[in-house]
Amino acid sequence: MMLSEQSIARMKEVVTKYPSRKSAVLPALTIAYRQIGHLDDDIYNEISEAIEIPAVEVAEAATFYTMFPKQPRGKYLIQVCHNISCALLGADGLITYLEQKLGIVKGETTPDNLFTLISVECLGSCATAPMMQINNDYYENLTRESVDRILKELTEQAQAEDEA
Protein backbone atom coordinates (compact mmCIF):
# COMPACT_ATOMS: atom_id res chain seq x y z
CA MET A 1 0.00 0.00 0.00
CA MET A 2 1.33 3.41 -0.98
CA LEU A 3 -1.66 5.49 0.07
CA SER A 4 -1.80 6.43 3.71
CA GLU A 5 -4.93 5.75 5.73
CA GLN A 6 -5.39 9.47 6.00
CA SER A 7 -5.35 9.90 2.22
CA ILE A 8 -7.83 7.08 1.76
CA ALA A 9 -10.12 8.56 4.38
CA ARG A 10 -10.01 11.94 2.66
CA MET A 11 -10.79 10.36 -0.69
CA LYS A 12 -13.77 8.55 0.77
CA GLU A 13 -15.01 11.79 2.24
CA VAL A 14 -14.57 13.72 -1.01
CA VAL A 15 -16.62 11.17 -2.92
CA THR A 16 -19.68 11.89 -0.79
CA LYS A 17 -19.68 15.59 -1.65
CA TYR A 18 -20.40 15.21 -5.36
CA PRO A 19 -23.66 14.33 -7.09
CA SER A 20 -21.61 11.84 -9.12
CA ARG A 21 -18.90 9.59 -7.76
CA LYS A 22 -16.72 9.99 -10.82
CA SER A 23 -16.21 13.70 -10.10
CA ALA A 24 -13.97 12.62 -7.24
CA VAL A 25 -11.32 11.32 -9.64
CA LEU A 26 -9.34 14.56 -9.91
CA PRO A 27 -9.54 15.40 -6.20
CA ALA A 28 -8.44 11.85 -5.38
CA LEU A 29 -5.52 12.09 -7.80
CA THR A 30 -4.55 15.37 -6.18
CA ILE A 31 -4.64 13.84 -2.71
CA ALA A 32 -2.49 10.91 -3.85
CA TYR A 33 -0.05 13.14 -5.69
CA ARG A 34 0.37 15.49 -2.74
CA GLN A 35 1.14 12.52 -0.51
CA ILE A 36 3.42 10.51 -2.81
CA GLY A 37 4.84 12.94 -5.36
CA HIS A 38 4.06 10.86 -8.43
CA LEU A 39 1.47 8.33 -9.55
CA ASP A 40 1.72 4.92 -11.20
CA ASP A 41 -0.49 1.96 -12.07
CA ASP A 42 -0.39 0.53 -8.55
CA ILE A 43 -1.50 3.84 -7.12
CA TYR A 44 -4.27 4.12 -9.73
CA ASN A 45 -5.49 0.75 -8.45
CA GLU A 46 -5.45 1.91 -4.87
CA ILE A 47 -7.35 5.09 -5.78
CA SER A 48 -9.78 2.99 -7.76
CA GLU A 49 -10.52 0.89 -4.69
CA ALA A 50 -10.84 3.90 -2.41
CA ILE A 51 -13.34 5.80 -4.56
CA GLU A 52 -14.90 2.80 -6.29
CA ILE A 53 -14.25 3.94 -9.82
CA PRO A 54 -12.69 1.53 -12.36
CA ALA A 55 -8.89 1.81 -12.49
CA VAL A 56 -8.92 2.40 -16.26
CA GLU A 57 -11.04 5.49 -15.73
CA VAL A 58 -8.69 6.76 -13.04
CA ALA A 59 -5.72 6.16 -15.35
CA GLU A 60 -7.45 7.78 -18.31
CA ALA A 61 -8.03 10.99 -16.39
CA ALA A 62 -4.61 10.97 -14.72
CA THR A 63 -2.64 10.72 -17.95
CA PHE A 64 -4.53 13.63 -19.54
CA TYR A 65 -3.39 16.16 -16.96
CA THR A 66 0.13 17.52 -16.50
CA MET A 67 -0.01 17.63 -12.72
CA PHE A 68 0.11 13.89 -12.15
CA PRO A 69 3.46 12.66 -13.47
CA LYS A 70 4.29 8.96 -13.54
CA GLN A 71 7.99 9.34 -12.79
CA PRO A 72 9.19 10.03 -9.25
CA ARG A 73 10.72 13.47 -8.86
CA GLY A 74 13.19 15.02 -6.45
CA LYS A 75 12.11 16.27 -3.06
CA TYR A 76 11.62 19.70 -4.58
CA LEU A 77 10.04 19.99 -8.00
CA ILE A 78 11.06 23.30 -9.57
CA GLN A 79 8.72 24.38 -12.35
CA VAL A 80 9.79 27.50 -14.20
CA CYS A 81 7.18 29.25 -16.32
CA HIS A 82 8.57 29.58 -19.84
CA ASN A 83 5.55 31.32 -21.33
CA ILE A 84 5.53 34.74 -22.93
CA SER A 85 5.28 37.26 -20.09
CA CYS A 86 7.98 35.43 -18.15
CA ALA A 87 10.08 34.85 -21.28
CA LEU A 88 10.12 38.60 -21.94
CA LEU A 89 11.70 39.10 -18.53
CA GLY A 90 14.37 36.43 -18.68
CA ALA A 91 12.71 33.04 -18.09
CA ASP A 92 15.11 31.35 -20.54
CA GLY A 93 18.02 32.89 -18.65
CA LEU A 94 16.47 31.78 -15.37
CA ILE A 95 16.33 28.19 -16.58
CA THR A 96 19.99 28.34 -17.66
CA TYR A 97 20.93 29.87 -14.32
CA LEU A 98 19.17 27.07 -12.43
CA GLU A 99 20.79 24.46 -14.67
CA GLN A 100 24.20 25.85 -13.83
CA LYS A 101 23.52 26.16 -10.13
CA LEU A 102 22.09 22.67 -9.84
CA GLY A 103 24.49 21.06 -12.30
CA ILE A 104 21.71 19.39 -14.25
CA VAL A 105 19.80 20.12 -17.44
CA LYS A 106 16.08 20.78 -17.65
CA GLY A 107 14.17 17.54 -17.12
CA GLU A 108 16.75 16.04 -14.76
CA THR A 109 17.00 15.48 -11.02
CA THR A 110 20.08 16.25 -8.95
CA PRO A 111 22.03 13.11 -7.86
CA ASP A 112 21.09 13.73 -4.21
CA ASN A 113 17.43 13.53 -5.28
CA LEU A 114 16.75 16.98 -3.91
CA PHE A 115 15.81 19.05 -6.96
CA THR A 116 14.04 18.28 -10.23
CA LEU A 117 13.97 21.08 -12.80
CA ILE A 118 11.30 21.38 -15.47
CA SER A 119 9.70 24.23 -17.37
CA VAL A 120 5.96 24.67 -17.75
CA GLU A 121 3.29 26.86 -19.30
CA CYS A 122 1.84 30.06 -17.80
CA LEU A 123 1.14 29.73 -14.08
CA GLY A 124 -1.00 32.86 -13.74
CA SER A 125 1.75 34.96 -12.25
CA CYS A 126 2.57 37.01 -15.33
CA ALA A 127 2.70 40.45 -13.70
CA THR A 128 5.30 39.17 -11.21
CA ALA A 129 7.57 37.57 -13.81
CA PRO A 130 9.86 35.75 -13.97
CA MET A 131 8.57 33.12 -11.59
CA MET A 132 8.78 29.50 -10.58
CA GLN A 133 6.70 27.10 -8.56
CA ILE A 134 8.43 24.74 -6.11
CA ASN A 135 6.11 21.98 -4.95
CA ASN A 136 2.98 23.85 -3.84
CA ASP A 137 4.52 27.33 -3.56
CA TYR A 138 5.01 30.23 -5.96
CA TYR A 139 8.20 32.31 -6.03
CA GLU A 140 7.71 35.55 -7.96
CA ASN A 141 9.67 38.57 -9.23
CA LEU A 142 12.78 36.38 -9.25
CA THR A 143 16.34 37.68 -9.42
CA ARG A 144 19.65 35.81 -9.22
CA GLU A 145 19.87 36.90 -5.65
CA SER A 146 16.46 35.59 -4.64
CA VAL A 147 17.03 32.31 -6.48
CA ASP A 148 20.29 31.82 -4.59
CA ARG A 149 18.53 32.44 -1.31
CA ILE A 150 15.59 30.14 -2.06
CA LEU A 151 17.80 27.22 -3.10
CA LYS A 152 19.96 27.69 -0.03
CA GLU A 153 16.95 27.71 2.27
CA LEU A 154 15.47 24.60 0.74
CA THR A 155 18.77 22.74 0.90
CA GLU A 156 19.17 23.66 4.56
CA GLN A 157 15.59 22.69 5.28
CA ALA A 158 16.18 19.26 3.72
CA GLN A 159 19.36 18.80 5.76
CA ALA A 160 17.58 19.75 8.96
CA GLU A 161 14.83 17.23 8.18
CA ASP A 162 17.42 14.54 7.51
CA GLU A 163 19.09 15.15 10.84
CA ALA A 164 15.83 15.18 12.75
Partner: peptide, 10 residues
Protein backbone atom coordinates in the same frame (compact mmCIF):
# COMPACT_ATOMS: atom_id res chain seq x y z
CA UNK B 1 -7.08 31.24 -15.16
CA UNK B 2 -4.47 29.95 -17.62
CA UNK B 3 -4.52 32.30 -20.60
CA UNK B 4 -0.92 33.53 -20.84
CA UNK B 5 -0.69 37.07 -19.51
CA UNK B 6 -3.75 36.71 -17.27
CA UNK B 7 -3.34 36.79 -13.50
CA UNK B 8 -6.31 38.77 -12.20
CA UNK B 9 -8.69 36.13 -10.85
CA UNK B 10 -5.91 34.93 -8.63
Amino acid sequence: ESEPGTCKDR
